[in-house]
């Protein structure tokens, strides 16, 4: 029964939401809003299930013989503390967010800069072709064009806007057209039941 009902419900709901989007003055628009609200509630429930999954994975890691037990222990400990704090004080939760999560994520973004420089240096080692050379050369010119030079006029300052607004924008539009077409057909495959991310053959 699930074999039949799951795709039937998914396809019907998908069509209703799609038509409700394109026909905003019809009664379908109201149905679309209700269905999207249900989806948001389901995503909230999924979040709870996801946290249980996260805990299960890390508790297994702590009790197993693998590497990284300390990190898993730290994660479970932090999760429980945040949960208890969040239950009793929302202001303390904001403090945790501003004092721990925000700086840690900013630090990771800073590490990204170093990682990208290293990746750029390594690029020619694993892709030794003309496109890789052009990629690195362009990245270098754009970076030099963005850097303020003391006492002298930056010669790359004029080239940088042209690269960004003409070359990069036209290339990006071509890529985005392809991505949009891919998105459209991925959606259609799900709507006709050819792709079933919700399980089933």
């Amino acid at each position: 029964m699930t074999k039949f009902f799951a795709p039937a419900i998914a396809i019907a709901v998908g069509l209703l939401v799609l038509l409700g989007y394109f026909l905003p003055n019809s009664s379908l628009a109201g149905i679309r809003v209700i269905i999207v609200q249900w989806a948001v509630i389901l995503a909230g429930v999924a979040f709870f299930v996801g946290v249980i999954n996260l805990l299960t994975v890390h508790i297994k890691k702590i009790s197993g013989k693998g590497k990284g037990k300390v990190y898993s222990l730290l994660l479970v400990f932090s999760l429980l503390i945040t949960l208890v704090v969040g239950l009793f004080s929302s202001s303390a939760l904001n403090t945790i967010f501003n004092a721990v999560i925000l700086p840690v994520e900013s630090s990771l973004l800073a590490i990204m800069a170093v990682t990208l420089i290293y990746a750029g240096i390594r690029l020619l080692r694993h892709r030794n072709d003309l496109m890789a050379v052009i990629f690195l050369f362009t990245a270098l010119i754009v970076m030099l064009g963005s850097a303020p030079l003391p006492f002298i006029e930056n010669p790359f300052m004029g080239i940088r806007p042209w690269i960004v607004s003409v070359l990069a924008t036209s290339g990006a539009r071509g890529i985005l057209l392809g991505v949009a077409l891919g998105t459209l057909f991925t959606g259609l495959r799900i709507l006709i039941g050819a792709d079933r991310p919700y399980g089933g053959k």
Binding site: L116, G120, V179, T186
Partner: peptide, 29 residues
């Protein structure tokens, strides 16, 4: 493009099903 050995560019992400022979609909799309 800079960091991965086999990057896919643009819509190639959506073509994976066709190249992995996931079914006729992927080819047709």
């Amino acid at each position: 493009y800079a960091s991965a050995s086999e990057p896919l560019i643009g819509e190639e992400l959506y073509a994976a099903g066709a190249y992995l022979k996931a079914g006729r609909t992927h080819l047709v799309s």
